[in-house]
Design a binder for these strands. Structure first.
Lengths: 244, 244
DNA sequence: TTAATAGTGTCTCTAAGACACTATGAA
DNA sequence: TTCATAGTGTCTTAGAGACACTATTAA
């Protein structure tokens, strides 16, 4: 577990590793939602140094007394910003090097989260500009310049999302609890960036077997109404046998 | 980037977060090799507290002055133990919570590595028992009890390896530079735990197009000799269209 | 010639993809 | 009846999987 090369204390750690040379470690969360059929990411404007005034991914330090584990820290950060209690949350990747923060060697555990845009209340600070949703391009680009290495991180998160959408049920987490199959198909198409054959799509969903119709409930319109579905209780992410 | 709730200093950090409550962070590496057709993992016996005398995954602290980034830290740790310069190295996952280390809140960036068992020299310490290869079961179990949460970590690493073997060229990294297609097929079969049709396997390898024959070179035996191949220069991991 | 393994060819049958068709509501 | 979208059926064709066949060496 350790490789200290200087005189070791009783527990095997060296003084300078514990006291001086310890990198700063944070948890950052890439929070996605879908609004008006567009993929958006939550950004916050930084108050303190460094990168003052820059937009950045929400993140923060681990609170050892509050956070049971890394997931809990990510969930706390997300809840503090969005008020969402049970998002889809998945660890993305760690990023750490000597140059991403001008203050020195830092590392971050990055999570990515999917939430439905309904029942969502952004927690703004004194300044209404402090937190906002920003549209994300298919390549993971966003309008403002981001602090730290957050441009790279966001690009990775979008790449992961797009990759997993090909073969998982992830997109349901971007929809409200009740949705129709055409709704779901539109989300897949939006994130993948291309149209999907209706018949093929429904076959996949039937095989994957993670949604169930809500008996009787249909979404009315001036045309044939669509069956409402929900995710089968107790199911988390489902992996498909084949790509969509 | 931060969410301090106590009086913030000029840079936005609070005193106790920086000085007291910072979790210890390490980098651990799950190093796999194939010896006598068996998947093995490198373990080291711990000297210091806690878990004295227990076997554990090789790991250590980040050395901010030596390690440019997380990958470099993992590569250094691996090189110190095995002498291998350019392993296949991939970040697995972060693990962090309040209970995995009795000393308090700790987190680790875990990597997994694949190396060929030829041209490999274990760096032993004074005690010859300090470092050793241990066979890994298909479920990722190993004979000795492991320190910290390393049992969980190892299981995850084996799961990731087995999953990726289904659709990537990863297993070549477990073979020496020159190998035959039957060699490669045996590695796939060994890790996946089932036999593969020879014809289907060779079709996949041809499609994936990541190996090239070494003209003329063949491995002789008292039967038809097999063509020797190598990985195409400049190629890293290749993902297959379909599963094996 | 035989034993043993390397390497290729072929056949069948499933299922992916394309697309046409039917169903059901409001206006 | 028409329009619009929901939902199902069918046909064609590529390719996965199974398996048989040929090739090449040493003994």
């Amino acid at each position: 577990m350790r490789t200290g090369r200087r005189p070791a204390k009783r527990d095997g750690t060296t003084r300078d590793e514990l006291t001086f040379a310890r990198p700063l470690v944070t948890v950052d969360v890439v929070i996605f939602t879908l609004r008006d059929g567009r993929l958006e990411v939550l950004l916050v404007r930084r108050g303190g140094e460094p990168f003052t005034g820059c937009w950045a991914l929400p993140g923060g330090y681990i609170h050892p007394t509050e956070d049971a584990d890394l997931d809990a820290a990510a969930r706390r950060i997300l809840f503090e910003k969005t008020g969402v209690e049970s998002p889809y949350l998945e660890q993305l990747q760690g990023f750490g090097n000597a140059v991403r923060d001008p203050r020195g060697w830092t590392a971050t555990f990055v999570y990515f989260a999917l939430i439905a845009s309904d029942a969502l209340a952004l927690k703004r600070g004194a300044n209404a500009d402090e937190i906002a949703w920003w549209g994300v391009s298919e390549q993971g680009m966003v309008e403002p310049q981001l602090a730290f290495d957050h441009t790279v991180i966001l690009r990775r998160a979008v790449a992961r999302l797009r990759a997993k959408v090909e073969y998982t049920s992830l997109p349901v987490h971007l929809l409200p609890a009740k949705f129709t199959l055409p709704d779901l198909q539109k989300v897949y198409e939006q994130i993948l960036g291309h149209l999907i054959d209706k018949s093929a799509f429904r076959k996949r969903m039937a095989e994957a077997d993670f949604v169930e119709p809500l008996p009787g409930e249909r979404r009315p319109a001036s045309n044939r109404p669509a069956q409402l579905y929900r995710v089968k209780p107790g199911l988390s992410t489902v992996f498909f046998d084949r790509t969509i």
